[in-house]
Design a protein around this nucleic acid. Structure first.
Length: 146
DNA sequence: GCCAACGTTGGC
DNA sequence: GCCAACGTTGGC
């Protein structure tokens, strides 16, 4: 069963564009137990919305888990922390902003809002689909003006 | 830049 | 084991 997640990155630290350039990245630096536990639950093939926090505050892409958790080499001997490897799947274009997510009644229970500071959040399949649909709807609105 | 939310640390 | 102090995240 494919699971869905939302992973946050500050755009000046690791933007979506860099993931596109590099093709694959190690999702490192998580130092929160709950986020860590989510990383450990990720399976190969799980899909992640890529969210820009702070500057941006919007979902900008979809990534896929290609390697399940292994020790975080940046943790300097602290074996509590793990990473996963992800690759880009597709851009979310136009992006879906936090404001739009907050407005959407179908997303009122989303972990992103309920636990604002958690950097790796589990999503329901319906929530994942809904966010992509909001983006697609915006494309329709742009192309269908008469 | 401020501050609310919340996780972590350390004294007792 | 409680809880006050402190640090960090991230929206505004």
């Amino acid at each position: 069963m494919v699971q869905y997640w939302l992973i946050k990155s500050e755009p000046f630290k690791y933007p979506w564009s860099q993931l596109l350039n590099e093709g694959v990245t190690m999702w490192e630096g998580v130092r929160n137990y709950q986020a860590r536990n989510n990383l450990k639950s990720m399976k190969t093939g799980d899909l992640c919305l890529f969210y820009h926090s702070n500057e941006g505050k919007e979902v900008v892409g979809v990534a896929k888990v290609v390697k399940e958790h292994y020790p975080d080499p940046t943790a300097e001997g602290d074996d509590r922390w793990v990473v996963v490897d992800v690759v880009p799947v597709e851009a979310v274009e136009p992006p879906v902003s936090l404001a739009e997510i907050k407005q959407d009644e179908q997303l009122s229970e989303i972990g992103l809002i309920k636990q604002m500071r958690l950097s790796v959040v589990e999503l329901k399949a319906a929530e994942f689909d809904r966010i992509l649909q909001i983006s697609a709807n915006k494309n329709d609105a742009n192309t269908s003006h008469s």
